[in-house]
Simulated scan of single mutants.
Amino acid sequence: VDPTDAMAALLYVDARAYEQRDRYLYTDQYRNPNNDCTHYATTAREILEDLGPVDYFFAPVGTAGSSIGISRRLREANEKLKVSGIVSTKDSAIPGIRHMDEMFYVGPFEEQKYDQLVGITASEALDGMLALIRDYGVMAGPSSGATYLAALRYLRAIDAEQTERKSAVIIVCDRVELYLSWIEQMRPALFEGYETPEAEHVNVANSAALGA
């Protein structure tokens, strides 16, 4: 199976799990109801306990489990909640996020559950990721960067119209160290001049051996 073709991989696993169903338990995060239900019962509860009712909610859409599950419970606390699902533009590939043409193949995704779906490019996701790391010390990955950037644009646009305090939540759901190869491919200049500690150790040892 082509490792870059997520749908092909999913169909392959589907077929094998069905053919050998007496041997495997297939948890299948894409269609397992416990995906969104767990976020409804736990992640959303934690948000409400910390913040109370939320006005704006932003989340990346991968399996759609977190965004659907959390928003369902947040809407119970505030029926005026505005939900933004973050997807990639069709010409971009952001790890952990799907684009609109792929959304209808994943389980809990329902377009009507979102007030808007926001398309973000891979370069923009990387910009948002770097802002989270540099400005806030949040070691997040590209899907979180995309969500942060989309939230910032949306909230800046409506900020002048606000007459009372509002609360907004974004989901940070990944870690940067898992995506270093993708980051280097996207923006190699970030890695220019960088040497690993092992390489530095070898250079020092070689210098000593040469009498430097």
Rank of each mutant, 00 (worst) to 15 (best):
I171D: 02
E192S: 08
M139H: 12
L11C: 02
G119N: 10
Y30F: 00
P33A: 09
A44G: 13
S144E: 02
D5R: 01
L48D: 07
A122V: 04
E198H: 04
T63L: 00
P3S: 00
E76Y: 06
Y56T: 00
D159E: 10
P142L: 04
T163N: 15
W182S: 09
A151H: 00
L48G: 09
R21I: 05
A140S: 14
G211F: 11
V83Q: 03
C37A: 15
T38K: 06
I97C: 05
N32V: 11
A140F: 14
I70A: 15
T43I: 08
C37H: 15
R165C: 06
M100R: 12
R73M: 07
L132F: 01
E192T: 05
A151C: 02
Y56M: 01
T89H: 12
D127S: 03
D36T: 10
Y105S: 11
D101L: 05
E79K: 03
Q20W: 14
V1I: 14
W182E: 13
G193W: 11
D91M: 06
K166D: 04
V176G: 09
D127W: 04
T4V: 11
Q29D: 00
I68Y: 06
A64H: 02
V169D: 04
E177N: 06
Q162K: 05
L149H: 09
L25C: 05
G119I: 05
A146V: 13
C37Y: 15
R98G: 00
R45I: 08
P60T: 00
R187K: 13
I86T: 04
I68L: 07
R23D: 11
E164R: 09
I86W: 08
S181M: 13
M139E: 08
A6I: 03
D28F: 08
A77W: 09
T196A: 09
G128I: 00
V169C: 06
S144P: 03
Q185Y: 02
A59K: 07
A9V: 12
A41G: 09
H201F: 14
I70F: 15
L51N: 15
F104Q: 13
C37R: 15
G137Y: 00
L81H: 07
Y24M: 04
F58Q: 11
T27W: 12
P95F: 15
Q112R: 04
L48M: 03
E49H: 12
E198Y: 07
L190C: 00
R72M: 14
A6Y: 06
N206G: 12
L190D: 00
R134Y: 05
V83P: 01
A122R: 08
A41M: 11
W182Y: 15
Y136M: 02
V1G: 11
D101N: 10
L149V: 09
E184F: 08
